[in-house]
Amino acid sequence: MAILEIKNLVAHFHTRKGIVKAVNGISYSIESGQTLGIVGESGSGKSVSQLSYLRLLPSPPLRIPNGEVFFRGNNLLTMSEDQLRTIRGHKISIIFQEPMTSLNPYLTIGSQLVEPLIIHLGLDKKTAWKEACEALDRVGIPEVEKAMKVYPHEFSGGMRQRVMIAMALTTKPEVLIADEPTTALDVTVQAQILELLKKIQKETGMAILLITHDLGVIASMADKVVVMYAGRVFEEGPVETLFERSAHPYTKALLKSTPRLDLTQEKIPVIGGSIPDLTQIGEGCPFYDRCSYRKDICKSTFPQNRNVTQSHQTFCHVEEL
């Protein structure tokens, strides 16, 4: 059974400028021990979709008019705040996209790291401190005893991101949401951190929801990939077939616009146009304006899912690309 299952999730921001339709009915699921990669252009709703069901976005303006999100069979959207709190930061942890601002500047690293251990695992201060030191050590922070006592501003972005990662992992979560966990890090550290995530996953069987722009990272980490665009899922499938047999014009364009080291390319093609205004999108396919395969039906209705293989689905009216 899936450990986390998202069903028809809709998340809108009701703002003065109109309704920002950030997430428009997405569904996917992830199993224990699995890594699900989520890719898509900036603004496609990758972060909002995760933050919304964890109730980490200000509401208002956020509204969730539709959808269900099951964690171990319990709907996160309908449970009480108290119930959700026992899951958040314990069973489901999140590494935020913004490492520079996600740590409290007024508190030491240590006092922030021990919190989840004390709240959720009921450890005493001393044990929690020891565990936190070990967590810092695991993510490759030198002189942990000293690091525990400093304030975040004394750390670089990369170091802060490692602290965030360590903090998310202290409680041994069952689901880890990693929102661009390695963008602030240089390539060698990035590889180190990804290795670490894989290792912990092997040990604890945690599921990882990995949001990233980097298709290389996806290829090396993910079992399954979801391609998002303007709050919709365009394609979903195992990492091997999705990249090789992509059956959606957007995925194809995305792959083409990624620089590849094994090919000497003169010019990297970019996808023309830009993501549509999220307050203006209607019932049709949001990629319509930019799509070179578009048909009339695309303008008015969003397609049903179509199986490419048993486990590979795409949402496109055009069958032959």
């Binding site: 964890l54 942890s93 996600s102 409290n104 709240i119 965030m164």
Partner: peptide
């Protein structure tokens, strides 16, 4: 209230009172 680090505190599972008094 709208700072990222308050969101982090909430994501860790702290209660609103803990967030207010500590963070």
């Amino acid at each position: 209230r709208h700072q990222d680090f308050i969101r982090t505190a909430r994501a860790k599972g702290l209660t609103e009172t803990q967030i207010l008094t500590k963070h």
